[in-house]
Design a protein around this nucleic acid. Structure first.
Lengths: 193, 193
DNA sequence: ATATATTTGGAACGTTCATTTCAAATAAAT
DNA sequence: ATTTATTTGAAATGAACGTTCCAAATATAT
């Protein structure tokens, strides 16, 4: 029957994601993607549809990777507050190891495209929902354990933390000083204690 | 002597800024700018140099406008903490009146271009310095007045507030619910009290 | 070995990109 | 009224854009 796809889709998505992450969606050209993936133009269009479709797949694979990393990170936590601390510590390390100041692909995407493409808006909404649920559950757990105060509801603290993460990821593009970043994290989390 | 520039530079910059704000730098074409400003291509190049130069002028005029608005807003404050509350209230109103979910031109610019153009990096650095100094002075004043606690130094709180503002502006693209936004602001500020 | 469905390479599609060019129009200074 | 420096309009620049096309190559199933 047919000739089967020969390239490693995971690897190709990784390469494409790197380009989008470095340059942003609009500044990335199809030629950039051809060069980065070492795939032929037709193969890209055959396998992914369009530039926007490919970008959406990149966003999803980026998200999947992060959800795994975040889960692994938080599995090490002794309690809910500790899990939140580890989450921010994880982001801190992401910022410190991001030597090209690329920031977060998804946060950057909010800035660049949230008011333009509906497919992107849908992705960002589901991403937001995922994180809001994760954070709310964590806060709820922390409040049950009494490691997190009850000055606000778990939903309210989840909103605060979601916003804080966006800010941290954006600020991390400008600030690379570890002490400064640690200060920001400590101050964000202090509110919960 | 020469024929003098006939167009209203302030108005032209405002029109150009609107386009950049709505679409972002890379998605904005020179044709978009010609259409929006009703200026001829040559006039734009004659008066502003290049697309990037024009964008930088837009960033600066946007910044100038905001600094004025923010000053006026905070002049109404009774004390330093109140000034910070008014600052966030100002941003909240900006978000609520931003029906196209454009976000903040400068915050968006961090995401889109901070790792690309050195002229942009310089602008963003000076913008950051300005806000950091403003916030640090406010916190210092608040701590002297005892409306802000001394759990952290003014510099540390300034970093926290700077990051919080970035987060609030980005989250405001996704969230338009007034109550949710108010919750975020209250929680951010609670830390200082 | 042959048939078949798919991938691949490479050129080509028409459009749009940022920028330049240059003659014509213009308004101040003489 | 003439000179002069500048702005303006409109077309043209070549390069790059995302996408399409199609013949050739290829790997599976028969």
């Amino acid at each position: 029957m047919p000739k089967v796809e020969t390239f490693d889709k995971v690897l190709v998505l990784k390469k494409a994601t790197d380009v989008f992450h470095e340059k942003g969606y609009n500044a990335t050209s199809m030629q950039d993607l051809v060069d980065a993936t070492a795939l032929n133009r037709s193969s890209i269009y055959n396998s992914f549809g369009s530039k926007l479709d490919l970008f959406l797949e990149c966003l999803k694979s980026y998200q999947d990777l992060y959800i795994i990393k975040i889960s692994e990170t938080m599995d090490k936590a002794d309690h809910a507050l500790h899990a939140i601390e580890l989450l921010f510590e994880f982001y801190l390390n992401e910022i410190l190891s991001d030597n090209e100041d690329k920031g977060c692909l998804i946060t950057n995407c909010i800035s660049e495209m949230a008011n333009q493409e509906t497919s992107i808006i849908n992705f960002l909404s589901s991403n937001q929902r995922f994180f809001m649920e994760l954070l709310e559950e964590l806060v709820k757990k922390g409040q049950k354990e009494s490691t997190i105060n009850r000055h606000r509801t778990s939903k309210e603290y989840a909103l605060y933390l979601f916003s804080s993460i966006q800010g941290f990821r954006t600020t991390g593009i400008l600030i690379s000083n570890k002490k400064d970043l640690q200060t920001i994290v400590k101050t964000i989390i202090q509110t919960l204690i």
